[in-house]
Each structure stands twice: as structure tokens, then as C-alpha cells.
Amino acid sequence: MECRKENKDGVIVLVVDGAIDHETAAAFEQAVMPSLDEAEAAGTGLVFDMSGVDYMSSVGLRVLMLAAKAAKQKSISVVVAGLQATLAEIFQISRFDKIFTIYDTADAAVAGVRG
């Protein structure tokens, strides 16, 4: 798994590649949490660009859950963009699609967050 952070128009975009599973979840978590702080500082939000992620296990979902909870406290928005079919199914089965706003592309997500 690779994690790259970008700042698009004040919105923090976390571009994630590869699989988020038992082995990589901790690294994923370590990448996510500082990004939330940055998003809070910017007063905008955090976009997960998942277009490069081909698999996510429940421990990956847990990190997203933690991000959602932290975002709620910080009063910023966290959204997800670019889900591949496998990931979309995972979101659908776990009903995470009901608690995350999902965009087709990162750009759309940035625009959405800037609202």
C-alpha cells in the first residue's frame, strides 16, 4: 500500500494505492490521522482518493470509521472518491456507503467538499 498526500484548493486529498488489509492497515492509519489534522487546520475536509485501491478488509474499514468519528469531532467532512468495483461492493455490503459521501472522482470530491 502506498499513501500520497495532496492539497487541492485547500482540500487535503489522500491518494491511496494497493491493498488495505491486516498488514497495511496500521500504516494506513498513521497516514490518515495527520491528514485529518491538516484538513482541520485548513478548515476544509479530507478526500480519500481510492481509485488505486483494489482491496480493503474490515480493518481498513475500521480506519475509515475512525476517520469519520474524528471528522465529526473536528467538524470537517471526510469523503471517499474513485471506488473500484471491488471496493464499491465492500462499501455496499458493510453499508459504509450510508455513512460516507462517495464521489466518482477526486476532483468531484474536492469540489463537493468545498461546496
Partner: peptide, 12 residues
Amino acid sequence: DGGPPLCVFEGF
């Protein structure tokens, strides 16, 4: 239809 797993979203 369903919802998220328990403990993900309080009050869902």
C-alpha cells in the same frame, strides 16, 4: 437495505 456495522455510527 441495512446500515453500517454496530459501533460505526452512534445513533444510526
